[in-house]
Amino acid sequence: MLKVASFKNYVNFANAKTIGRLFSSNNALNKVDGGKFTDFGSKMVPLAEKQKLVGGVFSSVASKYDIMNDVMSLGIHRCWKDHFINKLDAGKRPNSDTPLSFIDVAGGSGDIAFGLLDHAEEKFHDTQSTMDIIDINPDMLKEGEKRALEQNKYYNNPRVRFMIQNGEVLDAIESNSKDIYTVSFGIRNFTDIQAGLNTAHRVLKPGGIFYCLEFSKIENGLVDFGYQQWAKVLPFMGSVIANDYDSYQYLVESIERFPDQETFKYMIEKAGFQSVGYENLTFGTCAIHWGIKV
């Protein structure tokens, strides 16, 4: 379990939230003070520490990942993920020549990865496309492997690889090697989001597509008000359901710190993608962003 007190030992700006917001909306990097510090929820922590702290959060919630998502989104995350998979509509077509090479980053739990493979099989009878499931957190990957084992479909399957990798670097993935890059509810936890986007551009083949599902900025005032009230309750729900207040507090704060739709779109364009766009889901509670590598 994370201890908030331990964060207080780090530099704690009096109004870190305001400063961090200025920096994060100003450019792709959510760093301050020459790159020495970065935000971790509403707190400022040394850059090198964020990865460990985020790792701690996800190790803490890995076993209760489904409950966590259901609680945070009132179960709507399942509809969002379904919509994401159907919108991407990926898979090797019967009259096409080559199978696809997917990469799902920060996808340790495997729900998007397995969903994509299932969609390809059900709709296009595609049983050849391959999937790399990437996560920096071994506990989340174990959760995904556990699910694969339970489904008895993608465990020990040569089409599916589980890899512990930093999404900002992906040093085990060759450049220009992937057709479809997906990241779902993961990119906001990157220490350097722009580096993650640049890496996505690097690993995709020309013609490859980047697809991202992430919480975003709510555009409807009334819904936003409702969400703000809900966000106040969430950490308490976390402590009741999963006995973990701090992780839920971090997750709420990280959603708030994530760039809005237009800023994130600009960041994707900055990474080199073209035909960039986004679709708001549930009044902008979350958004699907996409871009094409030409």
């Binding site: 919509h83 159907n86 919108k87 991407l88 509509d89 990926a90 898979g91 090797k92 077509r93 096409s96 020549d97 080559t98 696809l100 296009f124 057709d179 479809i180 083949k205 013609g207 490859g208 597509i209 697809y211 035909s275 766009g277 679709e279 996409w290 094409i292």
Partner: peptide, 15 residues
């Protein structure tokens, strides 16, 4: 990459 390009082409539409 015909299958990928199909996804790219359809990206601005909701399923």
């Amino acid at each position: 990459n015909q299958s990928t390009m199909l996804s790219a082409i359809g990206s601005s539409n909701s399923p």
